[in-house]
Design a binder for these strands. Structure first.
Length: 891
DNA sequence: CATCAGAATGTTTTT
DNA sequence: CATTCTGATG
């Protein structure tokens, strides 16, 4: 047993152990906590300023989570509060889990006894269940998701005889969202926002809320709004919680909406020990109700607030940081921070322009191959420190036990590449118990210095349609990738259907769930029968389920023959299943039976014909769907019963991304917030796409600033390598669009950017040797030879991706198109010199036209067929005489 | 009531 | 281009 194991085995530093020494009011330094040594001065201040309101402005990569979790641990070890007296809220389950895990690690034991650590939503569910009757609900209320919500609105629209084409349900749903985000109840709807259905917006809102109440249900927005109402209208309840929460911690404060803000202000009213951590420069959710104003206004809301800035960045190299800082400096509405780093040198942010989106994807594919094989230039990679240096650092710390653990963890978390066996063993032992961490750890082990694991590379796009080009390309060359943030597991149709079955089995009066599945699989119960049932239920004060029972007995007009028979059968089945969910023994034809919930779930899916439905379906998705159903049933094992499972799932819409073979991550910029990668590619920096035209049209300057923050978030995800690119032409919705480089590119400080020249003729000079080889091999192997090699490279779940299906469909149809000639992009004065106003020009995609205006190297051209466009001079050729129409034009 | 062909319509996303 | 929704047929 070495020192390390000894530390692990030694009694953890329990909260209780220090209790005797650090009574409230006792000098704080009486118990010097080891974790404090790991903090820089402002971080330490953020952790130790426990009393009064604190705003921690934590720039990207400055150790925000570390400060937050250490503060939490500190509150506990110094016995400032019991775990149950601390409210700690996040936005996502993932963030909540991370906070719990990391705090537990600091404490040396599980932080399980923290009942009020969770998402805004989960905390409020807990509160509302306790006081449901005060807001007109029963404590067993169900939580509707977006799908149920839409269905409910549609019913409402229909019942009110409103034209749902003129006033779509989705439109009303987003209005609801906007109101609830601001905690606006039906009676408070501003006059100019109630325009829905000819000024019946507020009325509809009221009807909708009434309907929810009769269903004993809430939507996501209600969770917060009801809580605010609860506190506003019940002083005693508010008092109770104000007393309870001696300390409040808020993560990602810049993302809070008005309702969340009000909620926090109410709860912090007594002790005022509220600590909000956020970064105004990373506020990218304005479009869904987040108010940057909340963070900008903090000091006014909480007079005497202490503002602490975390500005030392531990993630990125100096060039990357400088590029990001230069960019964000163009924003006006910000509190202002000056990020700095101790890491000198590093590579500049690279910038490259391409002819079109496909070439951009091809080029990035090659670069990734280069990074993976170590063929990239690696002039000064500050992360490639030798193990000896690290040992020196260890020794300096005198092998202090917690320091050493923290050190190894940090080394590991920063993604450093260690090849030395000793370190590997150390890591192995340390991380043995930590499953989540061990995936990352394996990627560290798998990557010798100067090479990148694919897990360390990410492509961040503005809009999801951009992912397509990459998926297509990577499938062709067999580069493993993973798309993050696609449709989530619990949002898939088959999962929602199955869950609806479970919901009805558990509570037959769940009308929305019953409506969802009563005709899935097809039972001959169509729209007409549904309407009749709804009407019958309403008229007789019955649930939909009971109406269906009546229909089965032939008592409902308009539901006859097959539909009635099938409904009767279904109702009888549900009666059986329901009895099983009650845990009682059920007498069936074959005697008395009692089955567990997993078996019951299987049985429900089989007996209802749902499984069979997908088995008979021969669409390419069907096998995947069956697979998902199996997974769903499997995941039931972890729960006591179906009830428990459903309760859990309503709020957990996570999809665990299983690690396996290393893969490149492709995701939107939004999805990337909070993550970091050694190497980042940022494609599609074109005006109109990024910044997005729509964003600017809808929100003007505010929209542009949010887009710029998004750019800032993107660049700051990178540790050592950041590559920005743009394409002159891009296929969007089947049409070719040409565009100009993003204005954000002009805003990047020149000193920190290296402009790359795109490769010349494809397959000749230029590019990275390793990359070209790999890419070449992919192309020359023919259209996805389906070889074992490729099957290995692209793992099983990639077969389910849209990209793969497209490829599979195309396979055999055409040969892959020949690599097109790519011309040099020379964006300079020379290119412009050839043209003047009136010059007849040719453009590869738009054909012939005449120059009508010039602005630098950006020309406005009136094309004969394609209309007037702005185009870079480099993409135009003179079309004065013959020979101007090259015969190598594709198509 | 199911099925299919044609039209409409395309950011960013968590709970 | 590709998916989703609508409305006209069987």
């Amino acid at each position: 047993m070495d020192a390390f194991d000894a530390w692990e085995a030694a009694p953890a530093r329990p909260a209780g152990g220090l209790a005797a020494r650090a009574m409230p009011g006792a000098p704080r330094d009486a118990a010097p906590a080891p974790y404090l040594d790991d903090l820089n001065p402002p971080q330490r201040e953020a952790v130790e300023t426990l009393d009064g309101p604190v705003l921690v402005l934590a720039g990207a990569g400055t150790g925000k989570t570390k400060a937050l979790t250490t503060r939490l641990a500190h509150l506990l070890t110094t016995r400032r509060a019991w775990p149950s007296q601390i409210l700690a809220v996040t936005f996502t389950n993932k963030a909540a889990r991370e906070m719990r895990d990391r705090t537990g690690r600091l404490l040396g034991h599980d932080a399980e006894g923290m009942p009020w650590l969770g998402t805004f939503h989960s905390v409020n569910v807990k509160i509302l269940r306790r006081h449901a009757e005060l807001v007109g609900l029963k404590s067993t209320f169900t939580i509707l998701d977006t799908d149920d919500q839409i269905r409910l609105i549609k019913q409402l629209i229909q019942a009110e005889g409103v034209d749902d084409k003129r006033w779509p349900a989705r439109m009303f749903a987003s209005m609801l969202d906007r109101w609830k985000n601001r905690a606006i109840t039906p009676d408070k709807v501003p006059a100019d926002e109630g325009g829905y259905a000819n000024n019946r917006g507020a009325e509809f809102y009221g009807l909708y809320q009434e309907r929810l109440r009769t269903l004993n249900a809430v939507d996501f927005g209600d969770l917060l709004m009801h809580a605010v109402t609860l506190f506003r209208e019940n002083e005693d309840v508010l008092k109770e919680y104000q007393e309870r929460f001696r300390y409040i911690l808020v993560d990602e404060y810049q993302d809070t909406n008005v309702a969340q803000y009000l909620w926090l202000r109410l709860l912090a009213g007594k002790h005022r020990n509220i600590c909000c951590v956020g970064d105004d420069d990373q506020s990218i959710y304005g479009w869904r109700g987040a108010e940057v104003g909340n963070i900008l206004r903090f000091e006014k809301d909480f007079p005497g607030a202490k503002v602490i800035r975390l500005e030392q960045n531990y993630r990125s190299t100096s060039h990357i940081l400088a590029a990001a800082s230069g960019l964000i400096a163009a924003n006006k509405d910000r509190l202002g921070k000056t990020l700095w780093t101790a890491e000198e040198g590093g590579e500049k942010v690279r910038l490259i322009g391409h002819w079109d989106g496909d070439e951009e994807a091809r080029w990035i594919g090659e670069k990734i191959e280069g990074l993976r094989t170590g063929a990239h230039r690696n002039r000064h990679n500050p992360r490639s420190k030798s193990f000896e240096q690290e040992l020196d650092r260890l020794a300096k710390h005198g092998l202090g036990r917690p320091t050493r653990q923290e050190f190894v963890r940090q080394a590991f978390e920063s993604g450093s590449a260690y090849t030395d066996v000793k370190v590997q063993n150390l890591l192995r032992r340390l991380l043995k118990s930590d499953l989540k961490a061990s995936n990352m750890y394996q990627s560290v082990l798998a990557s010798p210095v100067d090479r990148f694991s694919l897990n360390e590379i990410a492509i961040l796009v503005r809009a999801s349609f951009q992912m397509r080009a990459f998926e297509d390309r990577f499938l062709q060359i067999g580069l493993p990738y993973r798309v993050i943030g696609g449709p989530r597991f619990y949002e898939r149709m088959e999962i929602r259907d199955a869950m609806a079955y479970f919901r009805v089995a558990v509570s037959p009066d769940d009308g929305l769930a019953f409506e969802r599945i009563m005709n899935t699989p097809k039972r001959g119960v169509g729209d007409k029968a549904n309407q009749a049932l709804q009407r019958y239920a309403r008229d007789n004060g019955l649930t939909l389920f009971e109406a269906a029972r009546a229909a089965g007995a032939g008592a409902v007009d308009g539901v006859g023959g097959k539909a009635a028979r099938e409904l009767g059968r279904l109702v009888a089945q549900f009666d059986d299943w329901h009895r099983f969910t009650q845990g009682t023994a059920v007498s069936t034809g074959s005697g008395v039976e009692r089955i567990d919930h997993v078996a019951l779930a299987e049985r429900i899916l089989d007996e209802s014909g749902y499984t069979a439905m997908w088995q008979n379906d021969k669409s390419p998705e069907a096998p995947g769907r069956l697979e998902n159903l199996k997974e769903l049933v499997g995941s039931l094992e972890e729960f006591e019963n179906l009830q428990g499972f459903l309760e859990h799932v309503a709020l957990i819409m996570d999809n665990e991304t299983e690690e396996g073979t290393p893969k490149v991550s492709i995701m939107t910029l939004h999805a990337a917030k909070g993550l970091e990668f050694p190497a980042i590619f940022l494609p599609g920096w074109e005006d109109g796409l990024f910044p997005s035209q729509r964003s600017m049209d809808e929100s003007g300057m505010k929209g542009l600033e949010e887009e710029r923050r998004l750019a800032y978030v993107g660049v700051t995800r990178a540790e050592t390598h950041a590559t920005i690119s743009f394409a002159a032409n891009r296929q969007m919705y089947g049409r070719w669009q040409s565009s100009l480089p993003s204005r954000f590119i002009d805003e990047l400080p020149e000193d920190h950017v290296e402009v790359l020249t795109p490769p010349g003729l494809y397959g000749h000079q230029g590019g990275q040797p390793g990359g070209l080889d790999a890419a070449g091999a992919g192309l020359h192997a023919g259209p996805l030879a389906g070889s074992a090699l490729e099957a290995k490279a692209v793992d099983a779940n990639a077969y389910n991706s849209p990209g793969w299906r497209r490829l599979a469909q195309r396979r055999g149809q055409h040969q892959l198109s020949q690599p097109r000639e790519v011309r040099n992009l020379v964006i300079d004065a020379q290119a412009v010199a050839k043209f003047e106003e009136g010059t007849r020009v040719f453009h590869q995609k738009f054909g012939y036209g005449a120059v009508t205006a010039m602005e630098g190297d950006k020309l406005t051209v009136a094309f004969e067929k394609a209309g007037t466009k702005k185009v870079l001079a480099a993409y135009l050729t003179e079309a004065g005489g013959a020979g101007a129409a090259p015969d190598d034009v594709p198509f």
